[in-house]
């Protein structure tokens, strides 16, 4: 289970508009000079009105403990969190923000390949800055639709040297990059990190299928969606009590657990953050999350989106 984290009421100290309908929001503590530390790739939970919780990566410099920087792209097709942050949040507002957490961190390696799609640049910008400062060998590839709509280009040029960065725009054929060719060779010990929209995640996952699992690190905005998937009812068995808990087709395992008083910590409820992760002992899980590594799927389960066939015994 994910560990609880302190929620701080932070002050919106600066709001800056970036191309591509992105807002860079600076958050500071109203009374404490230092915020809890974080490592490159970490994220915070923003607690929005109506109980919505959304994860945003910290894109700022981990050495600067006085502020957190997040980049928020307006997602018109989203669930309303980004629209609220664009339309309602104002300078000076107080926003509840969790202490940082990371399941997307730099790993030891002799070289690092960073791939960002669109606003997925935010954690990779922090990683690139850290790799540059620690003198490690790395390269950042940033994929976007067009130069004019690409956010954070000035932040990238401030934080990184141009030799460390390649920009790829869909509408500039000369800049395009063949992912399969890029990922075909792997240097000894090379680490791959990627973050971006669903199609980008799928393409890289396929192109890097031959990489060893422990060298591949990713963070999705949401669990991958399969339009053909039809949720079916199944049953949870609780290992501690043996109790059986039916999960109807229209309800998540997380909701079913909650209805009997087992309130696992949860945040995105979208299969992306891993907060509600728990273990399972036997049964056939249908994993629908975007956070567990393939090897973890043998005994870990994300109950906000994942389901099962028949009966699944949870280690609860």
């Amino acid at each position: 289970m994910a560990t609880p984290r302190i929620v701080m009421k932070l002050c919106v100290a600066e709001i800056r508009a970036e191309p591509g309908d992105v807002r860079v929001i600076t958050l500071e503590h109203p009374s404490r000079p230092h915020l809890p530390p974080f490592g490159a790739g970490a994220h915070v939970d923003l607690h929005l009105p109506n109980g919505r919780v959304r994860q945003y990566s910290l894109m700022g410099d981990e050495k600067d403990r006085s502020r957190y920087l997040i980049g928020v792209k307006r997602e018109p097709e989203g669930r309303g969190g980004s629209a609220w942050l664009h339309d309602q949040l104002a300078l000076g507002d107080i926003l509840p923000v969790s202490s940082p957490r990371s399941h997307f961190a730099l790993a030891p390696g002799t070289s690092h390949l960073l791939l960002a799609g669109g606003i997925g640049i935010t954690p990779l910008l922090a990683m690139g800055r850290r790799l540059k400062e620690t003198g490690q060998h790395f390269h950042l590839h940033y994929f976007a639709r067009s130069r004019a709509s690409t956010p954070l280009l000035s932040d990238i040029s401030q934080a990184l040297e141009s030799r460390h960065v390649s920009l790829h725009f869909d509408d500039e054929p000369a800049t395009q990059c063949d992912l399969v060719a890029l990922l075909a060779p792997r240097q000894d010990d090379q680490q791959l990190y990627y973050c971006g929209p669903a199609g980008f995640m799928r393409a890289i996952s396929a192109a890097a299928a031959h990489w060893p699992e422990e060298a591949v690190h990713f963070e999705a905005f949401a669990a991958p969606r399969d339009e053909d998937f039809t949720p079916e009812p199944f049953t949870l068995r609780l290992a501690s009590s043996g109790a059986l808990l039916p999960v109807p087709a229209g309800e998540s395992a997380l909701e079913a657990l909650r209805s009997v008083g087992i309130a696992l910590p949860s945040a995105c409820e979208n299969g992306a953050c891993g907060t509600c992760e728990c273990g399972y002992l036997d049964g056939e899980a249908l994993h629908r999350d975007g956070v567990l590594r393939p090897s973890a799927r043998a005994n870990r389960f994300i109950p906000c989106v994942s389901r099962a066939k028949g009966t699944l015994t949870l280690d609860l």
Binding site: P4, R5, I6, V7, M8, K9, P96, S98
Partner: peptide
């Protein structure tokens, strides 16, 4: 104000 929220003096 809520569980897990930072304490306020």
């Amino acid at each position: 104000p809520e569980a897990s929220y930072e304490m306020e003096a």
